[in-house]
Design a protein around this nucleic acid. Structure first.
Lengths: 133, 133
DNA sequence: CGGAATCCTAAGAGATACTG
DNA sequence: CAGTATCTCTTAGGATTCCG
């Protein structure tokens, strides 16, 4: 059976969707620097509600991307750490992050140009996007 | 000014969010094989409502990732094509897609194991995730 | 400290029908 | 053909409060 990301039910596609989660990439990115505790992640990842962070972590744990280790102490201590599978995400994820960082200016400029033009794309006289014919 | 994906207002972060869109990666992946027309994309990308596909394409056009070229003909013909910026996404995106495809089995197995265990992660006797102390 | 339980909404996503 | 116009709906995401 060949993997096919265009098939909504293909596992590869579901993983692609996972990466699309708002916090997944950020969490993995952080964990690449080493194991982190819950509130540690919370603080660095930005403004994320505990519920949301928990959900994200659970999903990634379920997918085998990271492990959750709870120490039976008071106060509690829970450490999240990437598995080998999770670490194998390093290259793809850093690649995306690097791309985003490297192309900020180009993208910002493009947005400015787009927003500052004759607005909506119409085939009519306006010649919005680009016209040929 | 240093790019910082952890900052919600950083342009790099906004682009990361864009990649998180449900259809963005799929659309770019298709356009890497060459220019496509609207319904062409619709058919291959899977079950996507025209409204949604339009929104996705508009966002990517605004970001300078692709161009929209409308030919003033009857019937209309509109071609979408990656810009150099869009093409520069090839490596990162293929990297992610390849990762997803290559690790299907590992992930599927991990999910099975997770779902089949003593369920919820509790610090209590259950020893859900993993316990130390 | 690390969540779980609740409640809420904003927006992406989808289905349908219609038009230049 | 390539959209636009509506309307509905699901759900990721978020704010808050409480608990072991």
């Amino acid at each position: 059976m060949k993997a096919n990301v265009y098939d909504p039910d293909c596992p590869a596609r579901t993983m692609l969707d996972r990466i699309g989660d708002k916090w997944t990439v950020l969490v993995v990115l952080m964990l690449l620097d080493g194991p982190r505790r819950f509130n540690d992640l919370r603080a660095h990842v930005g403004k994320v509600a505990p519920k949301v962070l928990t959900e994200t972590l659970r999903r990634l744990e379920r997918d085998g991307v990271l492990t959750r280790t709870a120490f039976a102490e008071i106060p509690p201590r829970v450490v999240y750490e990437l598995t080998p599978l999770g670490r194998s995400l390093e290259e793809p994820i850093r690649s995306i992050a690097a791309w985003a960082e490297q192309n900020i200016e180009t993208i910002t400029a493009a947005r400015g140009a787009y927003d500052g033009r004759a607005s909506a794309p119409r085939t009519s006289p306006g010649v919005a996007s680009s016209e040929r014919g």
